[in-house]
Protein backbone atom coordinates (compact mmCIF):
# COMPACT_ATOMS: atom_id res chain seq x y z
CA UNK A 1 0.00 0.00 0.00
CA UNK A 2 1.43 3.31 -0.99
CA UNK A 3 0.92 6.08 1.51
CA UNK A 4 1.32 9.53 0.13
CA UNK A 5 2.78 12.34 2.18
CA UNK A 6 -0.52 14.19 2.43
CA UNK A 7 -2.29 11.19 3.89
CA UNK A 8 0.47 10.60 6.44
CA UNK A 9 0.34 14.26 7.30
CA UNK A 10 -3.38 14.02 7.91
CA UNK A 11 -2.89 11.08 10.25
CA UNK A 12 -0.03 12.73 12.10
CA UNK A 13 -2.05 15.92 12.53
CA UNK A 14 -5.06 13.97 13.80
CA UNK A 15 -3.02 11.99 16.32
CA UNK A 16 -1.25 15.12 17.59
CA UNK A 17 -4.59 16.90 17.89
CA UNK A 18 -6.04 14.05 19.91
CA UNK A 19 -3.05 13.92 22.24
CA UNK A 20 -3.12 17.65 22.93
CA UNK A 21 -6.89 17.76 23.42
CA UNK A 22 -6.58 14.90 25.91
CA UNK A 23 -4.64 17.27 28.18
CA UNK A 24 -8.00 18.80 29.04
CA UNK A 25 -8.69 15.59 30.94
CA UNK A 26 -5.29 15.51 32.65
CA UNK A 27 -1.55 15.64 32.14
CA UNK A 28 0.23 12.55 30.80
CA UNK A 29 3.66 11.67 29.39
CA UNK A 30 2.55 11.51 25.76
CA UNK A 31 1.27 15.06 26.04
CA UNK A 32 4.63 16.15 27.39
CA UNK A 33 6.35 14.40 24.53
CA UNK A 34 4.21 16.30 22.04
CA UNK A 35 4.87 19.54 23.93
CA UNK A 36 8.62 19.16 23.54
CA UNK A 37 8.23 18.16 19.91
CA UNK A 38 6.27 21.35 19.37
CA UNK A 39 8.86 23.55 21.10
CA UNK A 40 11.58 22.06 18.93
CA UNK A 41 9.74 22.29 15.63
CA UNK A 42 8.53 25.84 16.20
CA UNK A 43 11.96 27.04 17.27
CA UNK A 44 13.67 25.46 14.30
CA UNK A 45 11.12 26.88 11.89
CA UNK A 46 11.15 30.40 13.35
CA UNK A 47 14.93 30.61 13.38
CA UNK A 48 15.25 29.27 9.84
CA UNK A 49 12.70 31.75 8.51
CA UNK A 50 14.51 34.62 10.24
CA UNK A 51 17.85 33.57 8.80
CA UNK A 52 16.40 33.09 5.37
CA UNK A 53 14.34 36.26 5.21
CA UNK A 54 16.55 38.64 7.14
CA UNK A 55 20.06 37.47 7.90
CA UNK A 56 20.80 36.30 4.38
CA UNK A 57 19.53 39.38 2.51
CA UNK A 58 20.70 41.91 5.09
CA UNK A 59 24.06 40.45 5.94
CA UNK A 60 25.21 37.38 4.08
CA UNK A 61 24.36 38.45 0.53
CA UNK A 62 25.92 41.93 0.92
CA UNK A 63 29.10 40.33 2.29
CA UNK A 64 29.19 37.88 -0.61
CA UNK A 65 28.60 40.73 -3.03
CA UNK A 66 31.43 42.64 -1.44
CA UNK A 67 33.74 39.65 -1.74
CA UNK A 68 32.74 39.24 -5.37
CA UNK A 69 33.64 42.87 -5.97
CA UNK A 70 30.06 43.76 -6.76
CA UNK A 71 29.11 45.72 -3.66
CA UNK A 72 25.41 46.12 -2.99
CA UNK A 73 25.89 48.18 0.14
CA UNK A 74 28.32 50.93 0.99
CA UNK A 75 31.22 49.72 3.07
CA UNK A 76 30.44 51.83 6.14
CA UNK A 77 26.91 50.45 6.37
CA UNK A 78 28.17 46.93 5.94
CA UNK A 79 30.84 47.57 8.57
CA UNK A 80 28.25 48.75 11.10
CA UNK A 81 26.09 45.71 10.46
CA UNK A 82 29.01 43.34 10.87
CA UNK A 83 30.13 45.13 14.03
CA UNK A 84 26.65 44.92 15.57
CA UNK A 85 26.39 41.25 14.69
CA UNK A 86 29.78 40.51 16.23
CA UNK A 87 28.73 42.37 19.36
CA UNK A 88 25.54 40.39 19.64
CA UNK A 89 27.39 37.13 19.16
CA UNK A 90 29.65 38.14 22.04
CA UNK A 91 26.60 37.55 24.25
CA UNK A 92 27.04 33.83 23.72
CA UNK A 93 29.66 33.67 26.44
CA UNK A 94 29.40 35.26 29.89
CA UNK A 95 33.02 36.32 29.63
CA UNK A 96 32.45 38.38 26.52
CA UNK A 97 28.83 39.26 27.17
CA UNK A 98 29.57 42.84 28.15
CA UNK A 99 31.04 43.52 24.74
CA UNK A 100 27.58 42.96 23.35
CA UNK A 101 25.87 45.59 25.47
CA UNK A 102 25.78 48.23 22.72
CA UNK A 103 23.93 45.82 20.46
CA UNK A 104 21.23 45.10 23.05
CA UNK A 105 21.10 48.75 24.00
CA UNK A 106 20.31 49.60 20.40
CA UNK A 107 17.39 47.19 20.54
CA UNK A 108 16.21 48.65 23.84
CA UNK A 109 16.49 52.23 22.60
CA UNK A 110 14.64 51.55 19.37
CA UNK A 111 12.00 49.47 21.16
CA UNK A 112 11.43 52.17 23.75
CA UNK A 113 11.17 54.88 21.10
CA UNK A 114 8.63 52.92 19.09
CA UNK A 115 6.62 52.21 22.22
CA UNK A 116 6.63 55.88 23.25
CA UNK A 117 5.74 57.10 19.78
CA UNK A 118 3.04 54.48 19.33
CA UNK A 119 1.49 55.13 22.73
CA UNK A 120 1.34 58.89 22.27
CA UNK A 121 0.49 59.07 18.59
CA UNK A 122 -1.46 55.89 18.16
CA UNK A 123 -3.40 55.50 21.37
CA UNK A 124 -3.56 58.44 23.77
CA UNK A 125 -4.29 61.23 21.32
CA UNK A 126 -6.76 59.34 19.10
CA UNK A 127 -8.56 58.02 22.16
CA UNK A 128 -8.85 61.51 23.62
CA UNK A 129 -10.06 62.67 20.24
CA UNK A 130 -12.65 59.92 20.13
CA UNK A 131 -14.18 61.28 23.33
CA UNK A 132 -15.57 64.03 21.11
CA UNK A 133 -18.08 61.53 19.84
CA UNK A 134 -19.29 60.57 23.30
CA UNK A 135 -22.36 62.73 22.93
CA UNK A 136 -24.16 61.95 19.70
CA UNK A 137 -25.32 65.52 19.13
CA UNK A 138 -26.77 64.84 15.71
CA UNK A 139 -29.16 62.28 17.17
CA UNK A 140 -29.83 64.55 20.10
CA UNK A 141 -30.81 67.48 17.89
CA UNK A 142 -32.94 65.29 15.70
CA UNK A 143 -34.77 63.81 18.67
CA UNK A 144 -35.16 67.17 20.39
CA UNK A 145 -36.49 68.90 17.31
CA UNK A 146 -38.85 66.04 16.65
CA UNK A 147 -40.25 66.26 20.14
CA UNK A 148 -38.75 62.96 21.32
CA UNK A 149 -37.49 64.43 24.56
CA UNK A 150 -37.00 61.12 26.34
CA UNK A 151 -34.80 59.84 23.53
CA UNK A 152 -32.87 63.09 23.52
CA UNK A 153 -32.22 62.77 27.24
CA UNK A 154 -31.17 59.17 26.69
CA UNK A 155 -28.54 60.33 24.22
CA UNK A 156 -27.14 62.69 26.83
CA UNK A 157 -27.28 59.99 29.50
CA UNK A 158 -25.39 57.56 27.28
CA UNK A 159 -22.69 60.14 26.71
CA UNK A 160 -22.37 60.81 30.41
CA UNK A 161 -21.99 57.09 31.17
CA UNK A 162 -19.37 56.70 28.44
CA UNK A 163 -17.31 59.62 29.68
CA UNK A 164 -17.75 58.59 33.30
CA UNK A 165 -16.55 55.08 32.51
CA UNK A 166 -13.38 56.41 30.88
CA UNK A 167 -12.69 58.93 33.60
CA UNK A 168 -13.42 56.60 36.50
CA UNK A 169 -11.33 53.83 34.97
CA UNK A 170 -8.40 56.22 34.68
CA UNK A 171 -8.99 57.41 38.23
CA UNK A 172 -9.08 53.82 39.54
CA UNK A 173 -5.40 53.46 38.81
CA UNK A 174 -4.31 56.70 40.45
CA UNK A 175 -1.35 55.61 42.54
CA UNK A 176 -0.56 58.64 44.67
CA UNK A 177 -1.86 58.62 48.24
CA UNK A 178 -1.17 60.22 51.56
CA UNK A 179 0.85 58.23 54.03
CA UNK A 180 -0.84 57.56 57.36
CA UNK A 181 1.91 55.88 59.28
CA UNK A 182 1.03 52.31 60.09
CA UNK A 183 -2.33 52.48 58.35
CA UNK A 184 -2.87 52.07 54.66
CA UNK A 185 -2.30 55.23 52.64
CA UNK A 186 -5.38 57.11 51.68
CA UNK A 187 -6.32 58.77 48.42
CA UNK A 188 -8.48 61.85 48.40
CA UNK A 189 -12.25 61.49 48.46
CA UNK A 190 -12.84 62.47 44.85
CA UNK A 191 -10.27 60.01 43.53
CA UNK A 192 -11.53 57.26 45.81
CA UNK A 193 -15.14 57.77 44.83
CA UNK A 194 -14.32 57.75 41.15
CA UNK A 195 -12.09 54.73 41.66
CA UNK A 196 -14.90 52.86 43.39
CA UNK A 197 -17.10 53.45 40.37
CA UNK A 198 -14.24 52.64 38.04
CA UNK A 199 -13.93 49.20 39.62
CA UNK A 200 -17.33 48.22 38.21
CA UNK A 201 -16.54 49.43 34.72
CA UNK A 202 -13.16 47.70 34.76
CA UNK A 203 -14.76 44.43 35.83
CA UNK A 204 -17.24 44.70 32.97
CA UNK A 205 -14.49 45.50 30.48
CA UNK A 206 -12.44 42.55 31.70
CA UNK A 207 -15.49 40.31 31.38
CA UNK A 208 -15.97 41.47 27.78
CA UNK A 209 -12.32 40.76 27.03
CA UNK A 210 -12.40 37.40 28.79
CA UNK A 211 -15.47 36.38 26.85
CA UNK A 212 -13.58 37.28 23.68
CA UNK A 213 -10.76 34.91 24.59
CA UNK A 214 -13.26 32.21 25.55
CA UNK A 215 -15.04 32.54 22.23
CA UNK A 216 -11.73 32.48 20.35
CA UNK A 217 -10.76 29.29 22.15
CA UNK A 218 -14.21 27.87 21.43
CA UNK A 219 -13.73 28.67 17.75
CA UNK A 220 -10.42 26.80 17.81
CA UNK A 221 -12.05 23.86 19.57
CA UNK A 222 -14.82 23.69 16.98
CA UNK A 223 -12.27 23.78 14.17
CA UNK A 224 -10.17 21.00 15.73
CA UNK A 225 -13.10 18.72 16.46
CA UNK A 226 -14.44 19.36 12.97
CA UNK A 227 -11.04 18.40 11.59
CA UNK A 228 -11.01 15.19 13.66
CA UNK A 229 -14.51 14.33 12.59
CA UNK A 230 -13.67 14.89 8.91
CA UNK A 231 -10.47 12.86 9.20
CA UNK A 232 -12.35 10.01 10.85
CA UNK A 233 -14.98 10.12 8.12
CA UNK A 234 -12.22 9.96 5.52
CA UNK A 235 -10.59 6.98 7.20
CA UNK A 236 -13.88 5.17 7.49
CA UNK A 237 -14.66 5.95 3.88
CA UNK A 238 -17.77 7.91 4.68
CA UNK A 239 -18.95 10.35 1.98
Amino acid sequence: MVLDLDFIGLLVAAVLTLVVLSYALGDHPIFRFVLYLFIGVSAGYAAAVAVQDVVFPQLVYPILDELNAAPSLDLAELGVRVLLVVMLLAKLSPRTARLGNPATSLLAGVGAALAVGGAAQGTILPQIGSAAGSFDMASFNLAWQGGYYLEAIEVIFNGIVLVLATVSTLAYFHFGAVSRGKQEPLRNLLVDSLAWLGGFFIAIALAALFSGVLLAALGALVERLDFLQRTLSLLLGAP
Partner: peptide, 18 residues
Amino acid sequence: SAQAGPLLRPYLHSDPVT
Protein backbone atom coordinates in the same frame (compact mmCIF):
# COMPACT_ATOMS: atom_id res chain seq x y z
CA SER B 1 -10.15 36.63 16.13
CA ALA B 2 -13.13 37.03 18.47
CA GLN B 3 -10.82 38.05 21.26
CA ALA B 4 -9.68 41.14 19.38
CA GLY B 5 -13.21 42.39 18.82
CA PRO B 6 -13.88 44.14 22.14
CA LEU B 7 -10.47 45.77 22.11
CA LEU B 8 -10.70 47.11 18.61
CA ARG B 9 -14.10 48.68 19.06
CA PRO B 10 -12.71 51.94 20.49
CA TYR B 11 -10.66 52.34 17.28
CA LEU B 12 -13.82 52.04 15.20
CA HIS B 13 -15.02 55.23 16.84
CA SER B 14 -11.73 57.10 17.24
CA ASP B 15 -11.19 60.48 15.71
CA PRO B 16 -9.76 60.45 13.06
CA VAL B 17 -11.12 57.05 12.17
CA THR B 18 -8.26 54.58 12.19
